[in-house]
Design a protein around this nucleic acid. Structure first.
Lengths: 152, 152
DNA sequence: TATTGTTATACTCTATAACTATA
DNA sequence: TATAGTTATAGAGTATAACAATA
């Protein structure tokens, strides 16, 4: 019997994986995720937390559930996230005026400046990745295409 | 004090998120992930398991660690995955001939036909998503772009 | 009855460290 | 010394169910 054990991974054939949008999406997304972590983990912010902050900053007064729905998260996952962001003095809960069941979310003053710092870092990383796109309006095309592929 | 609590999510402003490749990648990837689950979960196959099968099918005899490196996984994560695939009679471990520390991975006969069924389902879903791309060679463009964005 | 925030729970993924047997 | 497979473990992230207060 021949020894058909292969050791090197330099010649690995990815076969069908190479033709799958889904697989390449995953690889690209994992790369972005790990770079995001390198850039922002010292500030204690994950991609998920960043998204929450970004929504609240542009939509002050949204309720926890509304933010969760916008981001496609579950309500229950918001509790720990908002707890953490409130402890970090980035945003705060306020009782909703017209519904005593719910809290409305607002940025703190510190949170506003914190978000500026955060956004600058994220945009810097984002733009360094965008330079890999050669064409003139290739970034716009990519964003549109990804949006198309995000629809159910 | 005015009531600035907002309830509707139909008018949520995504702000910077809308301009971020990373965020749109995440949304698109999650959509692919959930559709993959709908299509393949009855067969007990997750995207990660599918990737392992695809690599072994095209590269019989690769060692566990080699497959892990190709996919960007950790060695330790391979154990449970290969255990499961072996129990499902999809692939099998064989002692490597030239290194008694390692196992080489091979498809079973059943695994080969199983992979054909699996691939057909995945390709069907993949092609239904690909029809959203309008341009002639837009798919090729997207795959290349995603590959570019996957490099460190 | 339905919804908001919450808690508890569980399940998957992922990352790390340490162990053994081999190299 | 270094490496392959393994085990244990811990940390995220995610999903479900249930509860109290309120609608």
């Amino acid at each position: 019997m021949a020894d058909d054990t292969k050791k090197s991974d330099s010649t690995v054939d990815f076969g069908i994986l190479n033709t799958l949008i889904g697989y390449r999406l995953r690889r690209a997304q994992m790369n972005f995720f790990s770079k995001f972590s390198e850039v922002c983990s010292d500030l204690g912010i994950s991609p998920g937390l960043f998204a929450i902050i970004a929504i609240v900053e542009r939509n002050p007064g949204l309720t926890q559930t509304a933010v969760a729905q916008a981001l496609g998260n579950d309500r229950s996952a918001m509790v720990a996230a908002v707890d953490k962001l409130e402890k970090m003095d980035i945003l705060k809960r306020r009782p909703a005026k017209n519904d005593r069941r719910s809290y409305a979310l607002f940025m703190t003053k510190y949170g506003e400046t914190f978000f500026q710092t955060l956004s600058a870092r994220v945009m810097e990383h984002e733009q360094s990745m965008a330079t890999r796109l050669k064409g003139e309006n290739e970034l716009e095309w990519l964003l549109e295409t990804l949006d198309t592929l995000s629809q159910r």
